[in-house]
């Protein structure tokens, strides 16, 4: 059976792929395509955050009683990434390639170190603590992510 870790890790990789597509479009100077692709990227990432914050984190917090632990850190990193996505989106709208590159690079590193914490630490903990609930939780997560057209 698919674990929470495998499922959400796959979604991280899908977001990475779209990120690379935007970069490619910017490098080609195709601003229209870059804008569309960035829209898809931003929708995918924000939906991923929303699913975690509305489904996974509350389930974990309820089961373990840890409300100020790792989930809190992940939430605050989501806030930082939302700001970077907004800044990168604004640079793209202004067709400022350098400004986009700087914000996108920062977002990429922030996103990757965040993913690493989730994939290596938080998701394995979720699989461990939410073993009984995952049969119910995973389809909900899947439906939630599908809402972003993934």
């Amino acid at each position: 059976m698919t674990s929470i870790r495998d499922f959400l890790t796959d979604d991280h990789r899908r977001c990475d792929d779209v990120f690379a597509d935007v970069e490619q479009a910017v490098a080609d100077g195709n601003w229209a395509l870059a804008g569309d692709t960035f829209g898809r990227f931003s929708a995918a990432v924000l939906q991923h955050f929303a699913v975690e914050e509305s489904l996974l984190f509350p389930a974990f917090e309820q089961k373990t009683g840890m409300t100020m632990g790792p989930t809190q850190v992940m939430r605050s990193e989501h806030v930082q990434m939302r700001e970077l996505i907004a800044a990168a989106g604004a640079a793209l709208a202004a067709q400022d390639a350098d400004e986009y590159a700087g914000n996108a690079e920062t977002l990429l590193i922030m996103m990757q170190q965040h993913n690493m914490k989730e994939e290596n630490i938080l998701y394995p903990m979720c699989d461990q603590h939410l073993a009984d609930e995952s049969a119910e939780l995973l389809p909900q997560i899947e439906t939630g992510l599908a809402a972003a057209g993934k």
Binding site: V79, Q80, E83, L84, A87, D98, E99, A101, G102, N103, E105, T106, I109
Partner: peptide, 11 residues
């Protein structure tokens, strides 16, 4: 604290 924006990596 999200009130003053930091310069991005390339800046």
């Amino acid at each position: 604290q999200s009130r003053v924006t930091a310069p991005n990596m390339k800046a």
